[in-house]
Design a protein around this nucleic acid. Sequence first.
DNA 1: ATAGGGTTAG
Length: 715
Amino acid sequence: MAAPLSTTISIDPSTRTRFTIVTPLTFTHRNFSIHCTASESIPQTPPTSTTSNTKNKKNNNKNSSLFDQLSPLANTTLSNTTSKDQSYVLSKPKSTWVNPTKQKRSVLSQQRHKRVPYSYSPQLRDFKLFAQKLNDSGDSEAEFLACLGEIPHELTRENALLILNSLKTWQKTLLFFNWIRTQNSLPMETIFYNVTMKALRFGRQFGKIEELAHQMIDEGTQPDNITYSTIITCAKKCNLFDKAVQWFERMYKTGLMPDEVTYSAILDVYAKLGKVEEVINLYEKARATGWKPDNITFSVLGKMFGEAGDYDGIRYVLQEMKSIGVQANLVVYNTLLEAMGKAGKPGFARSLFEEMIDLGISPDEKTLTALIKIYGKARWSRDALELWDRMKENRWPMDFFLYNTLLNMCADVGLVEEAETLFRDMKQSEHRKPDSWSYTAMLNIYGSEGNVDKAMKLFEEMSKSGVELNIMGCTCLIQCLGKAMEFDGVVRVFNVAVERGVKLDDRLCGCLLSVVSLSHGSKHEENILACLQQANPKLVAFIQLIVDEETSFETIKEEFKNIMSSAAVEVRRPFCNCLIDICRNKELQERAHELLYLGTLYGLYPSLHNKTANEWRLDVRSLSVGAAETALEEWMWTLTKIVRREGTLPELFLAQTGSGTHKFAQGLNISFASYLRKLDAPFRQSEEKVGSFIATRKDLVSWVQSKFPSGAIAT
DNA sequence: ATAGGGTTAG
């Protein structure tokens, strides 16, 4: 989803750490400031979910939200915490009571529903057989009802429940439920509704569940915690989060207190809505009344913080577990591992895994999938291979997800042969035939490696064996063919994708855009542009605009903003990089500088410049070759200006291109080095750090002075 | 699935 692109200050309360400060930045053609460390902001998270409660606040209490209802409780149970408190994690002291003897009002019931075992029925065997017969009956209502005529004995409460629980489709459960109702021989207890609702939930029939709920309310059968938690989790399963919240609030309004099951279910609903503050609020309110959360709650919290990439949140969960004395189980470890990965902490994931092994908890497929994925994304090939060996050694469980994750990991760290072996094994296996994910991983590997022949062979193989080509496989292929300058192949693959109805996304457009820049000067440029025209006509129109020297900067700025606003966040920088390359190919250097300026202005290059008193650093690691050259030129112009007016300069200048730790990474450092030579700039390749270029102030100043006659420098 | 809550691949 595209986040809005904005030129105003944006402080999104849901992202606690992300503030963007706009400082005035003057811009004149040809005279670019490189001090663009501040940026106009593009919010990274769509501002969607944070305001839903304020909407309800104005309504009367008939429709008031849960938080309004709970706020009097909050005032009495929580001290010195405001809901706007940004530092809820770790720094907040545990709640302190003003009056510890005063009874705190509860937000949840500590008592769970007691399970009543079924009483013995002498007709159990007969009814089990009868249930079997009903399951085997035809699916039509008539057949089912005919079968019901053969009921062996009069229906008791226990036997009715037995049958309700034994029917295998929700349709039959519902028919049987309605039949009991019409028989009128048994009082309709809550448990009948609950069992039926559970069957409906299995079939994701939220509408039917709601009908039943209204029906029971109408006839005066009280819904209990089991009813509500079933309704809420069904809504959740059907992605009807508003409905889940609605039913939870309804429950409060009827005066029924949720127990811990319902409570953790609703915590999960708010977590899935991304309402982190609300979840913490509810969690702490319940904690304050003495509730002892269990592993399920911690799994919900861990998942939520993982989705938010919030490392502090994950630490908060670990700390809470420790202080409450709850030992994590396998599910919690799996969730927290996954969360550590999302928060970008592979090292902590590794220690968490070792901690779990030391405790004697055996990893399952999900554990290993999470960890292999993390090592792959972090490019920790040694850890990934070590873990892979341990998996084989210990015969830890493997499944299809794990196989495909291993393939993806191989793609991430550049293990071509290992991937080929695994892929071959999968083909030879009975139950783990490669699917579209597996093929995509292999296409990714061959694509990154630039192995056109093997990639195309896989492509043909997929068509033959009927494995669907998905958007990512398609993008990998196009990228691979483009880099190999096989533009006819690009067009062919693109057309196949369109024919098969692959939905074209922004990444594919970015890929095509890079092919456009590569095809410059060849007879194929028009054909590639025609593909892009189909995928994203606005982008093609923008290219036409930027390559026309007559277009004013104001127009470029406006259209740039439009293009980037509607593009997915992750493709904005690649788009800008490619557009700069296209301009430089056509020797439209000035336009290239304008685009780099705009990219910087809109925060697409947030860490391009780093300055300390001793060192100025240009970090071009996320730039394309053309964009990196443009950035270097701009840097040098600024230095020239500063030298001219005899401003202060640091001792050291450093340009970083990255060493290309990725096995497949194409050498930006090589092209950057040759451009430095072309400019005859006094940067030297650092000996200890590959991909770093260093220059001293002395050398740079004399270089600047030699480029400009001394008279020109005097002011 | 045996009346209710949590975790796996771009």
